[in-house]
Amino acid sequence: MEKILELRNISKVFSIERGLFKKEIGGLKALDNINLSLNEGAVCGLVGESGSGKTTLAKILLKLIPATSGEVWFNPNKITRLRKDVQIIFQNPYASLNPKMRIFEIISEPLVIHQIVPRHQIKDRVIQLLNRVGLDAMAFSRYPRQFSGGQRQRICIARALAAEPKVLVLDEPISSLDLTVQAEMLDFFILLKEKLELTYLFISHNLAVIKRIADYIYVIKEGKIVEEGTSWLIFDQPKHIYTQQLLASAKN
């Protein structure tokens, strides 16, 4: 198993600015010296509560926001174009789709940007992608507001898959959905990974979910990685007190 990407000594401080020339007067340390590596084909779980910095970590990984210090390394043999090979699914399916764009436009956008298929094949490819996520072509001309949370999340997945990525970062992808839909989606994610040979970074606060899907786990608290290890190790022999607390709350 080769390393496909790595976060090396990543720190992030959100600065508080004031004045005409935006002078920095203070800072909020969101991430402190994070080291994380992702192996090709693995499912890496990131467990943390709200405010732990997990979403910031995801955004830095995708270079959507800059790190204050440290390096985001991608294996040059595996990841050649960041915006194509690494994709993200966000937590809130109600905010991740442009309300003024039709489903067809939303899903075809990556195809157009990266010129994945020639123009005349775009329509067919979009239908293929919709089918892959369990939606039919009727969705084409509809708007996001006409779909449920679970369906919107599937549209987000179709959009991400359109870019033919190698790595999928999933930031609490099922947390805002109904229980039964969560279970269905989790099964779907597992199936998808096998079928398309993807690598996942799966972020969640739900330990039961992480246990089902992740091979290797990082536990993050207040911007620091407090523990890491294989899934078996973490669940059976947690070493850090925070990990033990999390497990206790979940079981109790």
Binding site: L64, N92, N98, P99, A162
Partner: peptide
């Protein structure tokens, strides 16, 4: 989030502003 998503799929600044 949908703007962040647009960035993530590789949309250029011009595309993000206009579309």
């Amino acid at each position: 989030e949908f703007i962040q998503a647009a960035k993530a799929i590789g949309a250029s600044n011009m595309r993000i502003i206009l579309r």
